[in-house]
Structure formats: C-alpha cells, structure tokens
C-alpha cells in the first residue's frame, strides 16, 4: 500500500482528519526546507505538500507567488527539490510527501526521468496545477510505472459528469479546490464546500482533501468536519515571511510555522471529537 493510502487509512481508523501543510521548497532558504518539514511533522502534519517553484505560478495568490520568487532567487530548481525529498527521507520514512507544481519544469526534465528520480528520492505523489485530465495521459503512464499517485483537482466549477471522469483516473486522494480564485484568497463558502464534497463522494471512495482559503484553526475546523484532509498553504508561508520581515531569523520563522500549524491541528482535532 502506498504511504498516502496507508496514512489515510490509519487516520480514518483514529477518526482523524489529515493535516496537509504546503510550503515552497527553498523558501526562505534551501537549508531551511528540510528542518522545516521535520518540524511540521512534529507539529501535527500528516502529509507534506512541497511546492516546486516556477517562474509563472498562475494559480497562486501574492503570498505564494512571492515565495516562488524567493525560492528561485535562492537557486531552487526541480532536481534540487528532489534532493531535499531524499534528504528528508533519511530520517523520516513514513510521512507521505507530495510535490505540487506546474507542468513545464516536470516536462522539461522529462516525465520518465522525473518519475525515476522522484521515485528513487522517496516521493509519493505529484500534483500539477496546469495538467487537467485532458492532458494527463503521458505523465500518468510514467507515474503509474513507479507506483506514484497523481493527485487530481476538482474545482467549484467542475460539472458532475466531469467529476465522474476525474474520479475514474484518480489515485491517492482527490484535492477539492474550495473556491474560485487563487491560493490564499479569503472567501470560503462552507455550504458550497459541503455540497460539492457530497457530489464527489457519489463518484469516488478516495479520501477528499480541501485546499485554498483555509487560514486558521476556525476555518480548518469547519472544513475538517466534512473533509478527510485539510490543506493549509498561504497562511504558513505568510507566517514565515512576516517573521523574517519583522527581523526574525530562519529558526524563528520555522517556529512561527510550527506554532500556527499546532493551532490548526487542535482546531481540526476538536472538529473530530
């Protein structure tokens, strides 16, 4: 069983919702990323989503755009991201890791070369924001060859017949984008999220994670009541950036993320009880 499937099964048995933090690899520095990942696990992360920086991150709001720019300025690139994955795996062989990024760097490396390198590094899954099901066949063939999950997104605008098509090709979990907009936008409509998750469940047995627009313990608690996983990104990246902007050092920035993540963990767990 894959690490992702195993983790969701284990959480389901405990009646807990997965907490999935997102950070951009190489932000605020290359050296900080692996310590930050371990610290997030200690603070309650169940799965880690690592952003692959891209020059043109079209689905991101300003907070994560700037994180991409910082990471690139720090010399981050896809092969280096995979090295960080490998480094993380040296002392954590259980926490599922997924990369979230854009098509072009993966395509440039080559789908086959990426699948081989990512699998060897210990990566579990990939989300490419701009590869919808219509364009997915080539990369899917390579990911399946190395037993890696390709995580699909479902949006508020996805019609139900399309959900059924997406569900048919999905593995690992399904990622529901909770709002029309970019990452970090702030208008979560819980009634709509609840209805949409119910619609997805009519077509898939896979766990459902919800991301975009979850920023604190309260919003995480609300989403945890209806979802199997909660993704938090911009709020964490912002906590880190703010700490540094206020004169804090890298260690303090990591602790700011850990602290916020701890609060969100409590929020999620209080929804379950």
């Amino acid at each position: 069983m894959s690490r992702i499937a195993g983790r969701f099964q284990q959480l389901a048995a405990q009646r807990r919702t997965a907490l999935i933090p997102y950070i951009v690899a190489g932000d605020p520095s290359q050296d900080a990323t692996v310590p930050l990942m371990h610290r997030m696990v200690e603070s309650g992360a169940d799965i880690i989503e690592l952003g692959v920086p891209f020059s043109d991150p079209m689905s991101e709001g300003p907070v994560i755009q700037q994180a991409h720019e910082r990471a690139l300025a720090n010399g981050m690139c896809l092969s280096r991201v995979l090295e960080l994955v490998q480094e993380f795996r040296k002392s954590d062989d259980t926490t599922p890791l997924l990369l979230m990024g854009y098509a072009n760097p993966v395509m440039y490396m080559g789908y086959k070369a990426f699948a081989d390198a990512a699998s060897a590094a210990g990566l579990d899954a990939l989300i490419t924001v701009d590869i919808p099901p219509e364009e997915v066949d080539d990369i899917n063939a390579q990911l399946q060859r190395v037993d890696m999950d390709n995580i699909f997104l479902v949006a508020p605008t996805t019609p139900e017949e399309r959900i059924s098509r997406i569900a048919a090709g999905a593995s690992g979990f399904i990622y529901y984008v909770s709002l029309k907009g970019v990452t970090g936008a702030g208008h979560l409509d819980m009634e709509e999220v609840t209805q949409r998750l119910a619609a997805i469940r009519r077509h898939s047995q896979l766990p459902l994670a919800v991301g975009f627009g979850i920023k604190d313990a309260d919003s995480a608690r609300a989403v945890a009541a209806v979802a199997d996983g909660v993704v938090v990104g911009s709020a964490l990246v912002n906590a880190m950036a703010q700490t540094l902007a206020d004169g804090g050092n890298s260690g303090q920035a990591i602790e700011a993320v850990a602290s916020l993540l701890g609060e969100i963990r409590q929020g999620i767990d209080s929804a379950a009880s």
Binding site: A103, D130, E135, A155, P156, T157, P159
Partner: peptide
C-alpha cells in the same frame, strides 16, 4: 478536438477554468 496543432497547443490550465 483537443485543441492541438500537431504536438502543440492543448489546454494546460487549472481545473477551475476547464468548464469556462
């Protein structure tokens, strides 16, 4: 029908835009 000109073109956008 997929919007391809040989190997070029296509629809590489986020899921939110696919319906539009």
């Amino acid at each position: 029908e997929q919007g391809r000109f040989g190997p070029y073109g296509g629809k590489f956008v986020s899921e939110t835009l696919m319906a539009a």
